[in-house]
């Protein structure tokens, strides 16, 4: 990589807080044909590299089924990897056995309600992780729980309630408190607001952004909503069918998408408001048998023959920023694509 500005050079030298490299995850398909001998494998994540500096907030954006939740679970060590490494400050998370270093990554789950034991009160939900924190004595627990709940903006009088007695917004605050009570360095948020009303979404996002900045947390924020990602992330990675197709600073990606899929994602936001654009048609291909070459070619209007055979890699495309990378063989034809979508 060539030299850019001084600041980016400094960033390059630092060890990233969270580094995912060449991650591959697949699992046996749960098809209804149980007796099939060789069950086809779902290739959910196919070679993902991510690197988050301390205090960074990266948004991972993609449609449902693109593998972003699988990636989160793999990072949390909840499912086995096929290949690749996940490292926090250079320590491989799937190798270390120490509980303390694993607890440096915590996660907020998509369905706050499902992620809590229905038979436990808010207080015990948030206390539960502390039982496994060796540094935390019993007498310290209630203080830590209180400060975590406060940090998450949870109404203290409701702490004796059960999860089903709370609203979606309050429940998500409990989930945030539970993730923060172990004082992690890295927070993975898997669609933390997608189940909420727009107004509750706004509150939770503001709270998360606030926590991230005051605590200088490193955050991987997974969502299907580009608006939400844009609101709180400073960098974005767009995922399609198990691969990152574009990554870079948020404003660069929104202003000047370099991959056709990103262009359509961003156009879909406008389509809810006006009807000037043509939405991307069709559905993503099955991850059971991903297409050869570029995964996006079956739906891409600017594809050519090489897209069928050659797999594009993430390359820096624009002159202004080396951090903005896209995996498209024809990113020079993006203007053409913009014309196609506006003239319907």
């Amino acid at each position: 990589m060539t030299k850019s500005t001084r600041t980016s050079q400094e960033i390059e030298r630092q060890t990233p807080r969270l580094e995912v490299s060449d991650l591959h995850v697949s699992f046996a398909s749960r098809s209804h044909r149980r007796l099939q001998r060789n069950k086809p494998r779902v290739h959910a994540v196919r070679g993902v590299d991510l690197s988050l500096q301390p205090g960074a907030c990266m948004g991972l954006v993609g449609e449902s089924g693109c593998g972003k939740s699988t990636l989160a679970r793999a990072v949390m060590n909840l499912i086995p990897l096929d290949r690749g490494t996940i490292a926090v400050d250079g320590n491989d998370m799937h190798r270390v056995e120490s509980k303390a270093s694993r607890q440096r990554i915590q996660m907020i789950f998509q369905h706050a309600h499902a992620s809590m034991n229905p038979r436990m009160t808010v207080e015990s939900v948030v206390t539960d992780p502390l039982r496994f924190d060796d540094r935390c004595t019993k007498s310290e627990r209630s203080r830590r729980v209180e400060s975590a709940l406060q940090l998450a903006g949870f109404d203290a009088p409701l702490r004796g309630r059960y999860p089903h007695e709370l609203s979606g917004g309050q429940l998500q605050r409990v989930a945030i408190a539970r993730a923060l009570v172990l004082e992690p360095d890295v927070l993975i948020c898997d669609e933390p607001v997608s189940a909420l009303d727009v107004s509750a979404q706004v509150e939770i996002l503001a709270q998360l952004k606030d926590i991230q900045q005051t605590r200088s947390l490193t955050m991987l924020f997974i969502t299907h909503d580009l608006d939400i990602a844009a609101a709180i992330c400073d960098r974005l990675a767009v995922m399609y069918l198990g691969r990152i197709v574009e990554s870079g600073p948020t404003h660069e990606i929104l202003r000047n998408p370099q991959h056709p899929y990103t262009h359509y994602l961003s156009a879909a936001r406008d389509l809810k408001r006006t009807s000037a654009l043509q939405p991307l048609m069709g559905e993503p291909p099955s991850p059971l048998a991903p297409p050869t070459g570029c995964s996006f070619h079956p739906r891409c209007p600017i594809k050519s023959d090489i897209c069928h055979s050659q797999t594009p890699v993430l390359l820096s495309t624009s002159q202004s920023s080396l951090q903005h990378q896209a995996a498209c063989l024809h990113s020079e034809r993006m203007d053409e694509l913009k014309e196609i979508t506006t003239n319907r």
Binding site: R73, M76, N77, L78, K99, R102, Q103, I105, Q106, M107, F109, Q110, H111, A114, S115, M116, N117, D128, P129, R131, F132, D133, R178, L182
Partner: peptide, 11 residues
């Protein structure tokens, strides 16, 4: 999910 959550905090 809550079992996954418990695993993720080291239970």
């Amino acid at each position: 999910d809550f079992v996954d959550a418990a695993r993720s905090y080291g239970a």
